[in-house]
Deep mutational scan, measured.
Amino acid sequence: MMAYMNPGPHYSVNALALSGPSVDLMHQAVPYPSAPRKQRRERTTFTRSQLEELEALFAKTQYPDVYAREEVALKINLPESRVQVWFKNRRAKCRQQRQQQKQQQQPPGGQAKARPAKRKAGTSPRPSTDVCPDPLGISDSYSPPLPGPSGSPTTAVATVSIWSPASESPLPEAQRAGLVASGPSLTSAPYAMTYAPASAFCSSPSAYGSPSSYFSGLDPYLSPMVPQLGGPALSPLSGPSVGPSLAQSPTSLSGQSYGAYSPVDSLEFKDPTGTWKFTYNPMDPLDYKDQSAWKFQIL
């Protein structure tokens, strides 16, 4: 009977010793046993002879290597770790002494450095960015050149030099007046198309007034536009458009034309069986010896 009264063996659950049927240790109110408190290391007290050895090595170098620390530790009968900690504390003490010396050398008012006064946003004049500046400075420094007289040679050079070769001289006033084509001369031969040399188009003023001019072949195509416009036809070669000034309004060009419109200028042929003959000019830059190549039959 006494065997049943004795408590059973101890069981360990999660490293906790349980005594038989008792489960009081598993209750929430019972805390787990805490780790033992780490003991504080005792402070090391250095003797005068030990301090002399350490100070002598510190005077040589503030960062001794492990071999120098072990050698000193053997002399003063201390572990190497204590020597390492002593050098660490000695360097910190040396830095603190240097900072105190710097503070003593500075004057009393030198510690508080005078800061520059901050400028207020409204006091300083700042350039306004509302208006974009002129990058080319046209509004201040540029002045347009004065327009020359209508009959000045410089204007003629600016007008005619675009179309004339570089080897030719500017046309005088008398020749510029001949550039304007007359109405009857352009409409006299509506079906004849003559190819003149390129030099005649640039230099010869008579080429624009003769039936064999460069633009005589364009007349049949330009004249039928007159009834559609409801007024006189516009002429690209009329009046002052080739003269001194090219800047004319469309209203000033509306009254200039080749001449009176005639039914002869239409595109319809009077004789459907007729042929169109292209007159060959020996001055043509295209060297075609066979003139029969310039004739064709309209079917």
Rank of each mutant, 00 (worst) to 15 (best):
A3M: 11
M5H: 00
P9T: 08
H10M: 10
Y11H: 00
N14S: 08
L18E: 00
L18W: 07
G20R: 10
V23H: 04
S34N: 05
A35Y: 10
P36S: 07
R43C: 13
T45Y: 08
R48H: 09
E52P: 15
L54G: 15
E55G: 09
E55Q: 04
A56G: 09
A56M: 04
L57E: 09
L57P: 14
A59W: 01
A59N: 09
T61E: 03
Y63L: 13
D65W: 14
D65N: 11
E71C: 08
E71D: 09
E80Q: 02
R82G: 13
R82E: 14
R82N: 11
V83W: 13
W86P: 15
F87A: 14
F87P: 15
N89Y: 13
R90V: 13
R91S: 14
A92C: 10
C94M: 03
R95T: 14
R95L: 14
Q97V: 08
R98Q: 06
R98G: 03
R98W: 01
Q104D: 05
P108Y: 03
P108F: 03
G109T: 02
A112G: 03
A117C: 03
K118C: 01
T129R: 09
D130T: 04
D134V: 07
G137C: 04
I138Y: 05
I138D: 03
S143F: 12
P144L: 08
P144H: 10
P153N: 02
P153A: 09
T154R: 09
A156R: 08
T159H: 05
T159P: 01
I162M: 00
W163Q: 01
S164T: 08
A166V: 08
E168S: 03
S169C: 03
P170I: 08
L171R: 12
A174K: 12
Q175L: 13
A181C: 09
G183H: 11
G183L: 14
S185W: 15
L186K: 07
A189R: 10
A189C: 09
Y191A: 00
M193Y: 05
T194S: 03
A196M: 11
F201M: 02
S203Q: 05
S204Q: 04
S206G: 04
S210E: 01
Y214D: 00
F215G: 01
S216F: 10
S216V: 15
G217T: 09
L218F: 09
P220D: 03
P220L: 11
P220K: 13
S223C: 08
S223G: 06
P224D: 02
M225E: 01
P227Q: 08
Q228R: 14
L229K: 03
G230E: 03
S235Y: 12
S238F: 15
S238I: 15
S238Y: 11
S241H: 08
V242H: 06
L246Y: 05
Q248G: 04
E268Q: 04
F269Q: 00
K270Y: 12
W276V: 00
T279E: 00
Y280P: 00
M283K: 15
L286S: 06
D287W: 14
Y288E: 03
K289G: 01
D290C: 15
Q291C: 13
Q291V: 12
Q291F: 11
Q291G: 08
A293V: 13
K295Q: 04
K295H: 08
F296R: 00
Q297G: 01
L299E: 00
L299Q: 00
